[in-house]
């Protein structure tokens, strides 16, 4: 992301906010670290455990979640003044479910192998607390553009964590990255793969380590 854009003055009569003003940058960067949905808010753990045995499906899952969070934030934010308060949750759910189904159908058409592995979990994006949480907490009360940034932030925050987990799980569990045999390539042919890493328990351990490292660095304590 280029940081220079924010400096270009968008001159308008009112105090027009830069496309990537400091506040808006924070919308994207906060969930990456200080307010990470997975490691700090502990949301979306279910899929973080389930899909992360290999990097490739994890990548697709990450892209799917980013797309769903960003788009549903956009749609809900556009409709926020029309949505009747009493049925807002079900409206959010309908929008999310529609987007998730579209993503699922697209994957089935263009990434059939990955779809076979991921289909169940893609469907479960609907219940991923990150998505509903952002809609309810942010998109219902903020403008579309900000909401998209907020969605992207949360999506990326989720993505880097599951990708990190997947990286270590595939590396230690299958001795490969993206299916490429890393250890064979550098001449270590007898690398002992760790069966624990292939099972969900391995994800718990790595996720725990990531949370530990992150909290040690940021000094975050749960109150």
């Amino acid at each position: 992301m280029s940081t220079e854009v924010s400096e270009k003055p968008v001159v308008k009569k009112k105090e027009a906010e830069g496309l990537l003003s400091k506040r808006r940058k924070k919308l994207v960067s906060d969930p990456l670290n200080d307010d990470n949905p997975v490691t700090v808010q502990i949301l979306g753990i279910c899929s973080a455990l389930a899909v992360t045995t290999q990097v490739k499906p994890t990548m697709i899952m990450a892209i799917s979640v980013v797309a769903v969070v960003a788009f549903s934030n956009l749609v809900i934010s556009l409709m926020r003044n029309l949505i009747p308060g009493r049925v807002r949750i079900i409206v959010q759910l309908a929008v999310v479910a529609t987007l998730v189904t579209i993503v699922d159908q697209l994957l089935k058409a263009y990434f059939y192998d990955v779809w076979k592995v991921l289909s169940v979990f893609v469907g479960l994006i609907i219940t991923n607390c990150i998505v509903m949480g952002r809609l309810e907490a942010y998109a219902m009360a903020n403008k579309p553009y900000d909401s998209v940034l907020d969605g992207l932030g949360s999506g990326f925050g989720y993505s880097w964590v599951i990708l990190a987990v997947a990286f270590f799980r595939e590396l230690l569990g299958s001795a490969s990255i993206f299916g490429f045999k890393v250890f064979d390539a550098i001449g270590i042919h007898n690398f002992p793969t760790n069966g624990l890493m292939v099972s969900p328990v391995g994800a718990f351990i790595i996720l725990g380590l990531i949370v530990w490292v992150q909290r040690a660095r940021t000094g975050y304590v749960e109150r």
Partner: peptide, 22 residues
């Protein structure tokens, strides 16, 4: 925005839009 008619109308239109899209 809180009237029953509005809610029913809103839900009906939303359902049709999303259903059509799907």
């Amino acid at each position: 925005r809180q009237s029953n008619t509005y809610i029913i109308g809103f839900s009906a239109i939303l359902t049709m839009l999303l259903g059509g899209l799907l």
